[in-house]
């Protein structure tokens, strides 16, 4: 448990905010996703988003996206004040359509990845990443 006063308070704000956020995408995140897809429906498909179930550090969460045949993959942190995280664009000479980065998460939330495929269609997937103030392991 994180319990020195300063850290506890700092973390407490984050955790409290997280507890208030719904797990589903906020309106801002929905708007951001719609802006990327141009309002097109995004289905399920060959897109993987790898993220930790529980972040070791919410300030730097490693994620990987992979969508063979995609021309672009966008990542959204649906619970962040600014949901747009990154758009990876892949040119025709790209050896693979995969990328890794680290993102900052304001609290427990769904991270959403949307891939634009070569035929102009969109696929989407998401992962819940928990940002915790820590427990007490057995």
């Amino acid at each position: 448990m994180n319990l020195t006063r300063r850290d506890a308070l700092a973390l407490g704000l984050g955790a409290t905010a997280a507890a208030l956020l719904p797990l589903s995408a906020t309106a801002a995140a929905e708007d951001a996703i719609a802006a990327f897809t141009g309002g097109a429906e995004a289905g399920a498909g060959d897109l993987t988003l790898t993220a930790p179930e529980i972040a070791e550090n919410g300030n730097t969460v490693p994620i990987t996206v992979n969508a063979p045949g995609a021309t672009a993959i966008a990542v959204f942190a649906t619970g962040n004040p600014t949901p747009e995280v990154v758009v990876f664009n892949f040119g025709p000479l790209a050896g693979s359509q995969a990328a890794s980065t680290r993102i900052r998460l304001a609290g427990t939330q769904d991270v959403v990845a949307v891939a634009k495929m070569a035929d102009g269609s969109f696929v989407q997937t998401s992962a819940t990443v928990k940002v915790t103030i820590g427990g007490c392991g057995g």
Binding site: R5, A8, G12, G134
Partner: peptide
């Protein structure tokens, strides 16, 4: 240390979810 009632509650909710 001193903690607010709200923060104590938050800690307990967090641990309970673990």
């Amino acid at each position: 240390s001193e903690m607010t009632g709200e923060f104590i509650h938050t800690i307990m909710e967090d641990v309970a979810d673990n």
